[in-house]
């Protein structure tokens, strides 16, 4: 039977210990990937994998990732919503890994929303 090895988890625990616990609400950016049927069929999973790779390779510790259901804009999927603390959330539409990386670099890292992939720039509520 293949299983995770406890030694590996212990090693990771030691390595990661001391980094911020983002679950307590002290994150700078929250990224929500829409994981309804429409989103998944259109490619939401590669978008999620790309975000994980970006977070890992840039050693980012102040970004939280989460998933939500269908936002009712099925023909715009895959979509994600980015909420920078203190700013209005922005929804990005018809994504792929490449667009996702660009959004991560420009919006999440540098603070400049990528207007060409955004649904609308304005005060929107998240679903």
């Amino acid at each position: 039977m293949a299983k995770l090895r406890i030694e590996d988890l212990k090693r990771i625990k030691e390595g990661v210990k001391g980094t911020v616990n983002l679950r307590e609400g002290n994150f700078r950016v929250k990224i929500t990937v829409h994981m309804g049927t429409c989103g998944i069929a259109a490619g939401a999973r590669p978008v999620m994998s790309t975000l994980l790779k970006e977070i890992e390779s840039r050693h980012v510790t102040d970004v939280i990732l989460t998933s939500s259901g269908c936002a009712g804009l099925c023909s715009h999927e895959p979509m994600l919503t980015i909420e920078v603390q203190g700013q209005a959330p922005i929804k990005y539409i018809r994504l792929d890994p490449e667009k996702t990386s660009k959004i991560f670099e420009e919006h999440v890292m540098q603070g400049n929303p990528v207007a060409e992939y955004a649904l609308s720039l304005g005060s929107e509520t998240t679903h």
Binding site: L4, I6, D8, L9, K10, I12, K13, G15, V16, K17, T19, N21, L22, R23, L52, I55, E56, L65
Partner: peptide, 20 residues
């Protein structure tokens, strides 16, 4: 079981997810 071993470290830490 993984969370128990990690003892407070988030299961979403990239090295944990890579192991999985």
């Amino acid at each position: 079981e993984i969370k128990e071993q990690l003892d407070g470290v988030s299961i979403t830490a990239p090295p944990v997810l890579n192991l999985i």
